[in-house]
Simulated scan of single mutants.
Amino acid sequence: MNTYKIVKYTSEHYQMWNNFVANAKNATFLFHRDFMEYHSDKFQDFSLLIFDKKDILKAILPGNILDNVVYSHQGLTYGGLVLDENSKLSEVIQLNYQLLKFLSEAGIEKLQLKIIPNIYNNFPSDEMEYLAFLLNANLVRRDAIAILDLSNKIEISRVRKRGIETGKKHQLQIIEEDTFDSFWKELLIPNLNSKYNTNPVHSLEEITYLKSKFPKLIRQFNVYFEDKLVGGVTVFITKNVIHPQYISGNTAFNNLYGGLDYLYNHLITSVFKNEKYFDFGISNENSGRNLNESLHYWKESFGARTIAQNFYEIETKNFVKLNQVLL
């Protein structure tokens, strides 16, 4: 086994970390320190950098620690070991051996990973799926994500077409705006409080801060009927994937105006028509064991189809299982 040096992230690594993320084969702006640290008060950071014997950075792990378990990452949609585009499988096996050995010797018993869906990768990168098998990892959750391939679109259903025509008939206006104030205060927060007794993951102050850091990657589209705000969507943009992070509207927006169909069709066929994938997100509950059938069908009726995202729990002591893998 090759030897590697593992170092906990500090602010001194800020630029090095972000440069690595920018050139990694399986990373998005969610791994940028400015994004990770907007909620640093909620998580105890345990991010790691892995260097080879020449002090060249080979991998990073966005992470936090809670109750003797390292997570990658509880505050992010996905995580896992972030790799250089030139990484080879044998090297990743050796990296994981050193990583898990490091954690085990530090008294950390488990590592939990939420694997980044493969459509977000710049190059094929299923190394961690293979490592999960080698390490007898426990699959603790699997989500079904509805994905639309924008270069190979399936024709949308007649029901969606009717909704789009309804939106046109009501002359809905879609306007991109630089602020989130009206959408958050008038629609998103009241609707989440009323329906789920919860608040958005990002507060208005947090999403405004993130927009200031990533102005081209976080965009807000609001929908108006007769100059009244009736709906909207907050979109996260990565190199390969468009993902609506928040979507909300009043009762008439969904039931009378055809607003949701009209808005998504506008994003798919106009604003982001030249992108690769449109990620409708999950329709799961109970750690993936239940599916909201009608919600997933709505996404599929736009032509979306399903991919899986896996969540693994790895016992760090299992690093020894990698000793005899390479022949």
Rank of each mutant, 00 (worst) to 15 (best):
A137W: 02
Y97M: 08
L57Y: 10
D84T: 10
H39S: 09
D67T: 10
N86A: 15
V320P: 02
K5Y: 15
D45F: 07
A137D: 04
R158N: 06
L135E: 08
H296N: 12
I218C: 09
K42G: 01
I307E: 13
N284H: 06
Y120F: 13
T208M: 05
A132T: 11
K54S: 15
Y312S: 02
I164V: 10
L187T: 05
G80C: 06
D227V: 02
P215N: 00
S157Q: 11
K53L: 11
I175N: 15
I237K: 00
L30E: 09
F43W: 15
L217Y: 04
S151D: 12
R305N: 15
V235N: 00
V241S: 05
K88L: 10
E127C: 07
N122D: 14
R158V: 05
Y297M: 08
L295P: 15
S212H: 07
N96Q: 13
F29V: 02
H202Y: 14
N68A: 10
I247G: 04
H202L: 12
A106Y: 07
N197C: 04
L103N: 06
Y97F: 15
V325A: 06
L99N: 03
I314S: 05
M1T: 07
I50C: 01
F31M: 09
T208I: 03
F43H: 14
Y196A: 10
S287P: 01
I50V: 08
I189Y: 11
N274H: 11
G107V: 08
E205N: 06
N118M: 05
I189R: 05
H32T: 09
Y257H: 09
F46V: 00
I56L: 14
V21Q: 08
N64A: 13
Q74E: 11
R142T: 12
V230R: 03
K54H: 14
H170Q: 07
L134K: 07
N2A: 15
S125I: 01
N26I: 07
G258L: 04
G259H: 03
F311Y: 14
L256T: 12
D261T: 01
A132S: 13
K25Y: 09
E105Q: 12
Q112A: 07
D34P: 00
G303K: 04
L148C: 03
I164D: 01
S11F: 10
E313C: 10
I164C: 02
A132H: 01
N23Y: 04
E186G: 01
Q15K: 13
L229M: 04
L172A: 03
V21R: 05
L150V: 06
L30V: 12
Y297K: 13
F35M: 02
N193D: 14
M36N: 03
Y196F: 15
I108K: 04
T208N: 11
N64W: 12
V69A: 10
Q173Y: 04
N222P: 08
N250T: 11
F133Y: 14
S11H: 09
F102L: 08
N152A: 03
G258I: 04
S283N: 08
S11M: 09
S212G: 04
S182V: 09
D126C: 03
L327F: 08
L89T: 12
S287N: 15
Q173M: 08
G259S: 05
L49C: 13
F43M: 10
W17I: 13
S87W: 05
W17A: 09
N310I: 09
F20W: 03
N96W: 14
S212P: 00
P62E: 05
Q324W: 09
S87N: 07
E177N: 08
N197L: 10
K321Q: 12
